[in-house]
Write a protein that binds this DNA or RNA. Structure first.
Length: 516
RNA sequence: GGGCCCUUAGCUCAGCGGUAGAGCAGCGGCCUUUUAAGCCGUUGGCCGCGGGUUCAAAUCCCGCAGGGCCCA
């Protein structure tokens, strides 16, 4: 737990460190220097001389090389007239070896004012200790930043989840895997961009503040623009804007950015989350499938290092091709239901009641199929599986299947029991699209406040001509969860949404008097 | 939204009606190749917050706050 104001309250740790800070100042040292003395990055140094056989102690000492590296002090082992400390930077560790005989008397005195958590720079020759650990034999010590507060416990790290999320920096410092996970996230996002660019896609940016929130079914966040005196919505999806770009002549576009959905939090949901959406003129669902398999399997192999990765107690194979299953086949298989009976609306209703789905009488057969799928199949789809042939009611922006206009040419990709991606052969008939919006408006009338809103300007853009087009969204946070074996979305979002403590919670900004 | 669980020292955790504890960290000693260094000594607490029950509450009951897990 984090109590309001703790860091400012005097405590024995802070007081002791303030005292040391004063002593350093009294010695005439610049305690907050403007620049660190460094000749090498710590990681670079560790990597270059990691090999103990290629770089035995004699060879290292023989180099006649004096290095300066900076890092945060993680541990200190005092042994009278010699001291060992581990410095860390960017997840790498290098040991500093301080020996009274190696240092000036003044430098040795300042060493007594060193605490765990401080940033320092050490200068001296490289060496290897008796046990073979690469170390800097310190001749000079420069203080770069004095930590006034103590680090979490060095062995167990920071365990309290609440504090880990609220003070992520402490989590990153003291739990090594956490830093690694977020470094992997960066590499994944960067590899995704590279992959898309190699496929000829251009990255674009479209509005995050929209007058009509479209492209998905979800409750939006509302905000207000003062000068224009109009309400705006944080986007729930960029879809309708990216499609306008296809109308405008872009062949292939993608966007990686945040979407906002005003819904509950869970292990798989954060109100703001990162999505990649992309559209390719002239393509259809099959092309989207091929691209998705290529992307996901190459990320597993090239970024993480294997096409088979652990997922909790299980293993997931990311080798292409992924399994393909229609929604009805998935319901039949995982619900152990007779596949033929799913063609019969009354039977579907009976199954839905048996599965304790709510408001069965009010819902259409297509909606119930979606519910049954969620109920029976979704969580069990651990290995990558494309689910196809979605009911039209659930898919207002998708072309129907050839020869069956109750279903649409859409897939969702499930991995680890989670929806990872959602793709369509995009509906490009403006008349049909208008009808679908009408149906959504009717839904909304009858109380479904997640039904889509009519975006007339989007319809107008379609009327100017929208080519056949494949489109898809991939949830980046969930992708990172899968590739880093993280059970919660909060473990792959640096600063997940948290409710403030009541003591810290002021008046809601939205309710405050307008300061302008 | 419903259910279950958690909140004790800076951190990791015991204690579950009868004097608030341990390890790490801190402080003071010893120790010139340590690896969670070791050894000796020692400081540190609104036991999340507010009510109640009781001779007595960290412990039992109720409410509130924050968090976690499961279900919808």
């Amino acid at each position: 737990m984090v109590r309001a104001g703790v860091p400012m309250q005097p405590n024995q740790y802070r007081d002791a460190r303030l005292d040391k800070l004063e002593k350093l100042k009294a010695l005439g040292l610049d305690v907050w220097p403007r620049k660190a003395q460094r000749t090498h990055g710590l990681a670079e140094l560790a990597a270059t001389y990691a090999d103990a056989e290629a770089w035995p102690n004699e060879k290292l000492e023989g180099l006649g090389l004096s290095v300066s590296v900076m890092g945060r002090v993680l541990t200190i082992r005092e042994m009278g007239k010699s001291v060992f400390a581990h410095l860390t930077e960017n997840g790498e560790k290098v040991q500093a070896f301080f020996r009274m005989n190696d240092m000036s008397e003044a430098a040795w005195e300042t060493l007594k004012l060193l605490d765990m958590g401080d940033f320092i720079s050490v200068t001296g020759p490289l060496m290897r200790t008796k046990t073979g650990e690469l170390s800097v034999r310190v001749k000079e010590l420069q203080f770069l930043s004095k930590a006034l507060l103590p680090l979490p416990e060095k062995w167990h790290g920071l365990q309290d989840k609440e504090q880990r999320y609220r003070q992520r920096y402490l989590d990153l410092i003291s739990n090594g895997d956490v830093l690694k996970t977020f470094q992997t996230r960066s590499r994944i996002v960067s590899a995704v961009r590279r992959f898309m660019e190699e496929q000829g896609y251009l990255e674009v940016e479209t509005p995050m503040m929209q007058p009509i929130p479209g492209g998905a079914t979800a409750r939006p966040f509302i905000t207000h623009h003062n000068a224009l005196d109009m309400d705006l919505y944080l986007r729930i999806a960029p879809e309708l804007y990216l499609k306008r770009l296809i109308v405008g002549g872009f062949e292939k576009v993608f966007e990686i950015n945040r979407n906002f959905r005003n819904e509950g939090l869970s292990q798989r949901h954060n109100p703001e989350f990162t999505m990649m959406e992309f559209y390719a003129a002239g393509q259809d669902l099959r092309d989207m499938m091929a691209l998705t398999e290529g992307l996901v399997s190459s990320l597993a192999k090239d970024v993480v290092g294997s096409e088979t990765l652990p997922w909790g107690e299980q293993e997931i194979s990311y080798a292409a091709p992924f399994r393909r299953l229609t929604m009805k086949d998935a319901i039949a298989e995982y619900g152990h239901l007779d596949r033929h009976l799913l063609e019969d609306g009354d039977c579907v209703r009976t199954f839905a009641k048996a599965a304790h789905i709510e408001d069965v009488e009010k819902k259409t057969v297509g909606t119930l199929l979606g519910d049954l799928f969620e109920h029976y199949a979704e969580k069990q789809l651990i290995q990558p599986t494309f689910i196809t042939d979605y009911p039209i009611e659930l898919s207002p922006l998708t072309k129907t299947l050839e020869g069956d206009d109750r279903f649409v040419d859409r897939f969702e990709l499930f991995i680890g029991g989670m929806e990872l991606a959602n793709a369509y052969s995009e509906l490009n008939d403006p008349i049909d699209q208008m009808g679908r919006f009408q149906a959504q408006m009717d839904e909304r009338e009858s109380g479904n406040d997640e039904a889509m809103l009519l975006d007339q300007d989007f319809i107008t853009s379609l009327e100017h001509g929208f080519p056949p087009c494949g489109g898809e969204g991939i949830g980046i946070d969930r992708l990172v969860m899968l590739l880093t074996n993280s059970a919660s979305i909060r473990d792959v979002i640096l600063f997940p949404l948290m409710r403030p403590h009541s003591a810290e919670r002021g008046e809601s900004p939205a309710k405050q008097e307008d300061a302008t």
